[in-house]
Amino acid sequence: METATAKRYPEVWRRRTPRETALGWLWTAAVAFAAAWSVSALDIEWAFFADAHVQAFDLASRMWPPRWSYLPVIVRPLIETIHIATLGTAIAVVLSVPLAFLAARNTTANELTWAIGRALLVASRSVNTVIWGLLFVAIFGPGPVAGIVAVAARSVGFLAKLVAEAIEEADRGPIEAVEATGAGTAQVYLVAILPQVMPILIGTTVYRWDINVRESSVLGFVGAGGIGLYLYASINQFAWQQVLVVLVAILVIVMASEALSAYVRARIS
């Protein structure tokens, strides 16, 4: 009698539908396959790992004690590293604003200009600063100019992407109001949109500057100026005690610029 009146509830409950379960297994299989493929194809010589820790220890011991007398030599390249980051960022800011307006859906002129803007964004962002350095060293010859242009080339896309997103999310109201006064298109961008995206532009610029200090520390590897050249040279001469000094110096400037950037960003927001 009780069973007759009781509602019948299902006895099985599954969190996922069979389709979801199958998809889950498919993903797992894909990850496993990718792992197996990548590890096997890399042809790793496992024997190398056997004495790796011995070698690493050996390397570390040869770095000690650091040769502090090398420090005066690298002061100028360290300053140069920061110059490269700052000037490159400055150029990038100037170029990124028009690029952002070109690549934002609501401010670009037509489909073609939008596509050009997007293509420039993707190209700038997808090529690493050091690879840009390789290209600009070929053009300008070795030295900080190639480094500055490389930093600018990579940062333009980074800044413009975030600013373009901010433009697309800008409040329509003020734009409409300034349009209604009969202002020209450029004036509408200047007066109604630019102030709205200014905080993003400034914050991102400061953030990118400290990334650029880190990037500039290795531009010397391809001959694009800065401290990297000295690190590379010291390693190639097996001057490990110098290497340690350079590493410490790089750590100091990168961490200092990170702290400065974080401080400035906290102040302005």
Partner: peptide, 14 residues
């Protein structure tokens, strides 16, 4: 033609 809006539509940061 002057226009006045419901949401004021000022540029907030100016």
């Amino acid at each position: 033609i002057g226009m006045i809006f419901q949401e004021f539509n000022l540029v907030e940061r100016l």
